[in-house]
């Protein structure tokens, strides 16, 4: 039986256009506000880049969107499901590559991916083929029987990305996926992500410090600083509004040139005067 609400969604179409919809999302850690009343929408099938200096609140936002952290207040709808109340159905809609480590070092690379494929209910018939493909994309197929503890940092990162590619979520969150990877690997990964986006209509939600990556790949951009969204739109719109030539210049103009430390509790920001802030390379 089709529920009346569902019919309404199908008929009007508008409710499903935004695969992700966030309203007045706020997260407080004790009395420190990491994410401060942000609202935005992400269109189904688009590539959305969420940019901001260290400590701006990007990861905290992603953790709330992916049910890992409970918001202090606000509403999140993913793929039409309320991420706070219909957690299981929301979870079935997304995949995520976290910013920090999330592998089991005591298992082999292959075992890590199989574990993932099973808990994400990838059909048995397709499993080995998809795993092989994902590991080949990141160049780890030949090292699949190695224990993860023997992997280098870059290899671990590639494995985490491969893992997120074995189930085909509606929306894929990538929190600084390419940090520490060489240009060849970054290129291969972005090409694959772009093809997933084009061929499967998979929505991509990413954060990165490489402005040229964001500029090249993103349809829509939001810039967050001190827990507030300070600018959003297409790359062109942002460049026009800030009267700059590149996204990097626009970013620096909007967020200032001071260097930030992330993860400094209490008050998160330290400024080092007179030094030019550069994106991490």
């Amino acid at each position: 039986m089709i529920q009346p609400l569902l019919i309404e969604k199908i008929v009007s179409g508008s409710a499903m256009q935004n695969i992700l919809s966030v309203q007045s999302l706020t997260k407080k850690f004790d009395d420190f506000t990491a994410v401060n009343d942000i609202s935005f929408n992400v269109e189904a099938g688009s590539i959305f880049a969420f940019l901001g200096p260290n400590g701006a609140g990007k990861s905290t936002t992603i953790k709330m969107l992916t049910t890992v952290l409970r918001p202090t207040s606000g509403e999140i709808s993913i793929n039409g499901f309320n991420a706070l109340k219909e957690q299981d159905r929301a979870r079935a809609s997304f995949g995520i590559v976290f910013q920090d480590h999330s592998l089991d070092d005591e298992l082999t690379a292959y075992e890590n991916i199989v574990y993932h494929a099973v808990i994400y209910k990838v059909p048995k018939k397709e499993r080995s083929e998809r795993i092989r493909k994902a590991l080949e994309i990141v160049g780890l197929w030949d090292r699949r029987e190695d224990y993860v503890k023997k992997y280098s940092g870059g290899m671990k990162r590639r494995l985490e990305i491969a893992r997120a590619l074995v189930h085909y979520p509606k929306i894929l969150f990538l929190d600084e996926p390419t940090v520490g990877l060489d240009p060849q690997t970054r290129n291969a990964i972005w090409n694959h992500i772009r093809s997933l986006n084009k061929e499967r209509g998979m929505t991509i939600f990413l954060t990165t410090h490489y402005m040229e990556e964001a500029e090249a790949i993103a349809d829509q951009i939001a810039i967050i600083d001190h827990g507030k969204i300070i600018e959003s739109g297409t790359v062109e719109e942002i460049k026009n509004r800030t009267e700059t030539e590149s996204l990097e210049e626009a970013f620096l103009k909007l967020t200032g040139r001071d260097i930030r430390d992330d993860n400094v509790p209490g008050n998160k920001m330290r400024t080092i005067r007179g030094m030019r802030r550069r994106t991490r390379r």
Partner: peptide, 14 residues
């Protein structure tokens, strides 16, 4: 502490 718990908790399993 090693971050692996997240992997299990975000999966669509009860």
């Amino acid at each position: 502490q090693f971050g692996f718990l997240k992997e299990t908790l975000v999966a669509p399993i009860s």
